[in-house]
């Protein structure tokens, strides 16, 4: 038996990536979860166990904000699932039509909002929807719907939905592209076989294509879930850290930011901030696990 020599080059190849990934991502992640178990008492860090989470979930001063942010976040996610993904799928279905002209042009143009930063998107829509500038009201006037106009971003009952729609507008390109790719990979013979059986047009979409792209729809759903529960930038750019009006657009990301850094008179609290991060981590983890074990493993993979 020859003693295996140590292959140093493997270590050299792996070291930089593993080092940076571990020290800047994995270690801080666990350190944040650890910090959530402490609290500052008289300038000293004291271990308090799950006390911060108890405060977050049940103490009225905190829990009201937390459950509000969580509920808002679910609403935000729901709108993405119900509006963004169906529109994305519909656009992809149109674009993948075999003899459609200018498909590449449409595709590139519809993807443009996705590449813009949240700051641009947030402000641009804020200006367009602003009653001062009047673009939105005068456009609605032109189609006779002026009475429906309201300063949506300033009204508690509409602001969150409006921002969710802005976010949908921005990100519709991602489900569109992924579904488009999935639709293109469906072999022509399958569609022709359907055609012989008289399944064409819209029926072909529902009966043949949709079942085949279900795995991709699963992927978009989980991507949407993770992105939404980790969102922050758009709300912050459009409504500021206070997520106004009266916290009606507050989601977990803005709540964590406010708690961590403080705002106005409230001082920043890194330990409570960590506790919120811990809650976000748990939610995302549950979502990802549900997807991996509940949905993906049961989904039938068609051999294409």
């Amino acid at each position: 038996m020859q003693k295996p020599r140590i292959r140093w080059h493997i270590a050299v190849f792996l070291a930089p990536a593993v080092l940076i990934y571990t020290s800047v991502m994995i270690f801080p992640l666990f350190n944040t979860l650890r910090l959530a178990l402490f609290q500052k008492v008289d300038q000293e860090r004291v271990y308090v166990g799950l006390e911060n989470f108890r405060t977050l979930f049940f103490d009225p001063t905190w829990s009201e904000q937390f459950w509000n942010a969580l509920a808002n976040n679910f609403w935000f996610f729901l709108i993405h699932m119900l509006v963004q993904n169906p529109i994305g799928i519909a656009l992809a279905a149109l674009l993948s039509h075999p003899r459609l002209r200018f498909a590449a042009l449409y595709r590139s143009a519809i993807f443009i909002p996705t590449i813009l930063s949240f700051v641009i998107v947030g402000f641009a829509w804020k200006l367009i929807l602003s009653p001062i500038w009047g673009i939105a009201p005068s456009m609605m006037d032109a189609v006779g719907l002026k009475s429906l106009f309201a300063p949506w971003l300033g009204k508690e009952e509409y602001a969150l939905t409006t921002l969710a729609m802005v976010s949908v507008w921005q990100f519709v390109g991602i489900p569109m592209m992924l579904i488009y790719a999935a639709l293109l990979s469906i072999p022509e013979e399958m569609l022709e076989a359907g055609e012989i059986d008289g399944v064409t047009g819209i029926a072909a979409f529902w009966k043949i294509k949709l079942p085949l792209i279900l795995p991709s729809i699963g992927i978009i759903s989980i991507l949407t879930f993770v992105a939404n529960f980790n969102a922050f930038d758009l709300i912050y750019a459009a409504q500021g850290a206070l997520a106004g009006p009266d916290f009606s657009t507050d989601i977990l990301g803005t709540f964590m930011y406010r708690t961590f850094f403080g705002f106005q008179l409230q001082l920043g609290d890194p330990h409570m901030g960590s506790a919120i991060a811990g809650a976000m981590f748990a939610i995302i983890l549950v979502g990802v696990c549900l997807y991996l074990f509940g949905i993906q493993s049961r989904m039938r993979r068609y051999q294409l």
């Binding site: 020290s23 800047v24 961590f260 995302i284 990802v288």
Partner: peptide
């Protein structure tokens, strides 16, 4: 295991660790 370890980060957003990243 190394492959799985590195793949963990695909799904978990790095923002969760912000508090400790700033500390560091």
């Amino acid at each position: 295991i190394m492959g799985l370890y590195l793949a963990l980060g695909i799904m978990i957003p790095i923002r969760i660790g912000t508090v400790a990243i700033l500390d560091m």
